[in-house]
């Protein structure tokens, strides 16, 4: 991410940001040249906090909520990749390395950002992680099919969770922008896991059809709360399912696929609490 752009973006919204954070504008303008890449989220966040103070509380709360989800996802992929009893095919392993790297990077990014806003980030040590969710996914770390089902559900849920929180970050366009950039990466992950599951015979596409998880049996029942509401076909009063244009005639399935739906915080907490508490 380009932090020069972020500072410039803030300056466009708030031309006085440079004055707010320092009386020496040149120091700030040269700021990103002098700070190492890894330290940037922290340092930039410090600037935000200095400039905007208490208005960041809702943002910190929201980032900690996101961080909780990322900690769960990172733990899931870290343990999955490390599990000697989980037979991840060699052809699929690179994808999980990619996803794991992203989730761990999201944890670091959000942790640094919260710290730099003078908030207190939650951490893995704050939680008990139970990837079996109390036994609902008892073989998640030894049965690749179960692992994939949980992976898909985590990614699809993550997409819905970020979507549901976006408005809470509108007070800081730079942080909102970064959250959106995480949100779409989670959607890319979800699509790929779905491709893997489809190749293995599951009835899924890279996108979500209706409120169907494509996960069968007890696991399907267990994950259903992550998919409820995805079958919405009316957007801002427009009935998408009845759209006809040229050779294209939409229906309930394609209309639901075309729009992903948000989940509010309470729904997400209910979904993830069996895994992380």
């Amino acid at each position: 991410m380009n932090f020069n752009n972020i500072l410039n973006a803030i300056a466009e919204q708030d031309p006085e940001v440079f004055e707010k954070v320092s009386e020496r504008r040149d120091v700030i303008k040269n700021f990103t040249r002098k700070v190492s890449l890894v330290a940037l989220p922290f340092a930039v966040g410090s600037l935000f906090n200095k400039a905007y103070g208490k208005s960041t509380d809702i943002i910190i709360d929201t980032l900690n909520f996101a961080l909780t989800l990322e900690i769960l996802e990172a733990a899931f992929y870290n343990q999955g990749l490390a599990s000697s009893s989980l037979a991840i095919p060699a052809s699929d392993r690179p994808a999980f390395v990619t996803i794991s790297t992203h989730e761990n990077a999201h944890v670091a990014f959000l942790t640094n950002t919260i710290n730099s806003l003078s908030g207190t980030p939650v951490s893995l040590a704050s939680f008990t992680i139970d990837l079996t969710a109390g036994g609902a996914f008892a073989d998640v770390l030894s049965n690749y099919s179960t692992f994939l089902a949980v992976s898909q559900t985590f990614e699809d849920t993550g997409v819905r969770a970020y979507k549901g929180q976006a408005a809470n970050l509108m007070g800081n366009s730079a942080i909102l922008g970064a959250a959106l950039q995480i949100h779409s990466v989670e959607a890319r992950h979800a699509a790929h896991i779905r491709e893997i599951r489809a190749l293995a015979g599951a009835s899924v596409s890279p996108w979500i059809t209706g409120n169907q998880s494509g996960i069968t049996g007890a696991a399907g029942t267990a994950v259903q709360p992550s998919y409820n509401g995805e079958d919405n076909t009316t957007q801002a009063g427009v009935n998408i399912a009845t759209i006809k244009s040229g050779a294209v005639a939409l229906n309930a399935n394609s209309a639901s696929e075309a729009f992903d739906e948000p989940l509010d915080k309470a729904a997400v907490v209910a979904i993830v609490t069996p895994f992380i508490h």
Binding site: H183, S184, A187, A191, P206, W207, A258, D260
Partner: peptide
């Protein structure tokens, strides 16, 4: 936001 994640899936 409802649309961008579908574009990301594509």
């Amino acid at each position: 936001g409802k649309i961008v994640s579908v574009e990301a899936r594509h």
